[in-house]
Design a protein around this nucleic acid. Structure first.
Length: 497
DNA sequence: AATGCCGGGTC
DNA sequence: GACCCGGCATT
């Protein structure tokens, strides 16, 4: 949970305080940025930190908005807060709300401790304003400030998101944190959570590019987005909450049973996620953090074992096929989800995301028919047989065979933890999930096929040989381990074609 | 024959 | 809706 970023230590001033800041630092975007970042840290620590502490790391975006009241450090009087200047500089209208700016700008001398820093700060502060702006946006990252939103989670709890934020989500926050900071470049570290928060609009990201863009999308587009990793569902939402909901409702059958399970089914994408090939965004920049789902074949990532069933970052073993990313391309089959307004297809349709609130863009389509393709979807629609599968296999980074997933024999629920715990990424995954990961590629194909109009309805049976079904995997003897669908002689849900 | 699962039945 | 199973298609 409280994974902290390496960088954080520097700011270590506050136990927790830093985390928030940490987020940013991760991003190495601009050369100059570092210095700035540092500053940022400082500031944050100095002032906001307190807040964080209070919250235990769970900050809410909301808070930020309230920042005035909420954050104000005791010692530091309100005057501190008055830091109008910042806003001014920041071109963006959002500014006012933007928490981030505030901290920076006003960062007052209040903190004695940091004399030196202070000094530096001061100097920089001047520049800072500008810097601040730039930096944030560069990332899109909502900044720590914005961190409020998703970031908060990360920050507060432990920067979860830092790690790539992607997966992390408020709820899961601790869960997924990766150290990516250290190792994994791939996952978009910086991005951080961007706020999943509803207020997404707030962030400064705009800056450079952002403003330029169409006003409308500028904001939204940049910051983080969450992509549904469910096979064949590429839905992208701006808020983690929305995404969770989406996953829960659409993919998990709406059951709350597995509270955090949703987390595994979506990933965070930094603003301009690769997904969106569309050049739309002017911000050429940092691709780096952005894609949570790095194509990276190399498992190097710290979070090797990403549990996420479908997760983009499949455990190392996964073949290049790695699903990473990809799913997105498929239209989400169902998106009744209110929240989800957006869907972004990798194709680029959609960078646009509705800024806040109702994401649903008018134009959106609900492609029910379209994609609904593959059996995988049946999971939802059908009986959710699979959902409850008792089995769980441990996914460790070391997951067994790259290509083939090890049969259940492996373990049932056990501790999956070794690695997991350490990395924080690991998580036990149901068999089906694993399978999904590994076969993601396959799934996609299937999906595509399904998607194609001509094939729409088809329920194709796959050649026997290809598919592994519960019966094959577990054998008749262990029928009890079969997914319910198999037991009932229905289409296997655990190993959908 | 074994497997996968549709279609339909029962509770 | 959960559960089962006949029966067909495929291997």
């Amino acid at each position: 949970m409280a994974t902290k970023r390496p960088g954080d230590t520097s700011s270590s001033s506050g136990p927790q305080s830093c985390p928030s800041t940490a987020v940013r630092p991760t991003d190495t975007r601009q050369p100059g940025a570092e210095t700035q970042e540092t500053l940022v840290y400082m500031q944050c620590c100095g002032q906001e930190a307190p807040n964080l502490t209070e919250r235990n790391g769970h900050r809410k975006i909301m808070d930020r908005n309230h920042q005035g009241p909420v954050f104000v450090p005791q010692g530091r009087t309100e005057r501190v807060w008055t830091h109008p200047p910042a806003p001014q500089q920041t071109t963006t209208p959002t500014i006012p709300s933007c928490p981030v700016s505030a901290p920076y700008s006003f960062w007052s001398p209040g903190s004695v401790e940091m004399d030196e820093i202070m000094a530096a700060m001061v100097l920089t502060s001047l520049s800072c304003s500008s810097v601040v702006q730039s930096s944030p946006q560069s990332q899109n990252d909502p900044l720590p400030g914005p961190s409020s939103g998703g970031g908060d989670m990360g920050c507060g709890g432990g920067d979860i998101e830092c790690g790539g934020g992607e997966l992390s989500d408020s709820s899961s926050s601790g869960y997924w944190s990766w150290d990516h900071g250290n190792v994994s470049p791939a996952p978009s570290p910086s991005v951080a959570e961007m706020d999943s928060s509803p207020d997404e609009g707030l962030h400064m990201e705009l800056e450079q590019g952002g403003e330029l863009h169409t006003a409308a999308r500028s904001k939204s587009s940049f910051r983080g987005t969450y992509r549904c990793l469910w096979p064949s569902c590429g839905k992208v939402l701006t808020s983690s909450v929305g995404m969770k909901r989406h996953v829960r409702v659409l993919h998990l059958g709406g059951s709350e049973q597995s509270p955090r399970e949703e987390d595994f089914y979506y990933t965070k994408i930094s603003c301009e996620a690769p997904a969106d090939p569309s050049p739309v965004s002017p911000l050429p920049p940092d691709p780096s953090p952005v894609s949570p789902l790095p194509p990276d074949p190399s498992p190097v990532s710290p979070l090797p074992p990403d549990p996420s069933p479908v997760s983009p970052l499949p455990p190392a073993p996964l073949p290049a096929s790695s699903p990473h990313v990809p799913w997105a391309s498929f239209g989400s089959p169902l998106s009744p989800d209110p929240d989800s307004g957006l869907q972004i297809s990798s194709s680029g349709s959609g960078s646009s995301r509705p800024s806040s609130g109702p994401e649903s863009a008018p134009g959106q389509h609900r492609p029910l028919s379209q994609s609904a393709p593959s059996s995988s979807w049946q999971i939802q629609t059908d009986h959710l047989y699979q959902a409850c599968t008792p089995l769980q296999v441990t996914m460790t980074s070391c997951s067994p065979a790259p290509c083939c997933w090890t049969p259940p024999t492996v373990s049932n629920q056990h501790s999956h933890h070794n690695t997991q715990v350490v990395t924080g990424r690991c998580r036990s995954v149901s068999v089906g999930e694993q399978w999904l990961q590994q076969n993601s590629a396959t799934n996609r194909l299937t999906t595509l096929r399904a998607a194609s109009p001509s094939l729409t309805h088809c329920s194709f049976r796959k050649g026997r040989g290809e598919a592994k079904k519960c019966r094959k995997v577990y054998g008749v003897e262990r029928k009890d381990q079969w997914c319910t669908a198999c037991r009932w002689k229905k289409a296997c849900q655990r190993f959908p074609d």
